[in-house]
Computed example of a mutant assay.
Amino acid sequence: MSNMTSFSLLSRILHWMMAIMILGMLFVGVFMASTVGPEYHRLMTLHRPLGIAILLLAVVRLANRLCSPPPLLSAELPSTMRFAANASHISLYALMIAMPLVGWGMLSAGGYPIPLWGQSMLLPPILPHNPVLWARLRATHTVLAFLLFGLVLLHISAALFHRLILRDGVLQSMLTRKSRCDGALDSDRMSGR
């Protein structure tokens, strides 16, 4: 059994980097939905490569999670909360992978070129040109965006709940690296041993 009570350094870096990217992507998406003309195209120029970067990093993050499992949740946590934590993490990973794939498929079905940076690098279409499929995927992309936004809010709320109410170190485990030995030393210092 690992004596670490924190996430690995790579896990923490990927988590916070992707948190910033996903929040940025959600805001870009909101502005895109309410913008027309040249501003829309500028936002789309940012949206596409950011989406693909999130897709690639989500795959890296999933592989990292399998190779470097997260710390175990406290045994004192009720089973319903454990289930909710696991279900929300699975859902977040699924959405981090599904959203960019649906967006890529939507652009493919719309017959749009999918440049990442200028015209120098184009992604290949992953679906045939089909306006009906494009419309369905666009609606799906929107629904998934709202689901992701809701899950992000839930994730932030849970982190604050753990920090402010339970005070169980769950948020701290994503901020710093600490081993069980460090925790024992801290408790020894506090008790005067």
Rank of each mutant, 00 (worst) to 15 (best):
P115T: 13
L154W: 06
L62T: 12
H129Q: 09
I97N: 12
A94E: 00
L92W: 01
N86R: 03
N130K: 07
S108C: 11
I156G: 08
C67V: 07
A139H: 13
I90L: 09
N64M: 11
W134Y: 12
S173L: 00
L92G: 01
L154A: 13
G169A: 05
G105S: 10
R177P: 01
P115F: 15
R163K: 09
L175F: 03
M99T: 14
S120M: 15
F149S: 11
L73W: 02
H162I: 05
L133G: 04
M121L: 14
A139Q: 14
G105P: 04
H162S: 09
M81G: 05
V152F: 03
P78A: 15
Y112P: 03
L101K: 09
L153T: 02
A98Q: 05
H129W: 06
L175S: 03
S108Q: 06
L122E: 07
A135F: 12
L171T: 00
V132H: 10
L95V: 02
H89G: 02
P71G: 08
I114Q: 11
P128D: 09
C67N: 05
A139F: 12
M174D: 00
G110M: 08
L144N: 07
H89C: 04
M81C: 05
V102M: 12
R138S: 15
M96W: 11
S108F: 01
L73S: 12
P78R: 14
P113R: 08
N86I: 09
S88C: 06
R138L: 15
M81Q: 12
V60P: 02
P131S: 14
G110E: 13
L160C: 04
G169W: 00
T176E: 03
M81W: 04
V152I: 14
P125F: 10
L147Q: 12
R61Q: 08
L73R: 06
P69G: 14
L101F: 13
S68V: 10
I156W: 09
A139I: 08
F146R: 03
R136S: 15
S173G: 03
G103I: 03
W117V: 15
V132N: 07
T176F: 11
A75K: 08
L73I: 04
M96T: 06
N86M: 08
G118Q: 13
S74W: 04
I165F: 08
M174Q: 01
H162M: 10
L116T: 04
L66K: 06
S120H: 11
V143K: 07
V170I: 12
L151M: 13
M99Q: 10
I90W: 01
L66E: 04
M96L: 14
T140Y: 06
L95R: 02
R82L: 02
I126C: 15
A109C: 06
L151P: 00
S157E: 02
Q119I: 10
S91P: 00
V170K: 00
R163E: 14
V102L: 05
C67G: 10
L72W: 02
M174T: 01
W117Q: 12
R163I: 07
A94W: 00
G103V: 05
G110D: 06
W104G: 08
H141T: 15
L153C: 14
V60S: 12
G105K: 07
L57P: 00
V170C: 02
W104D: 07
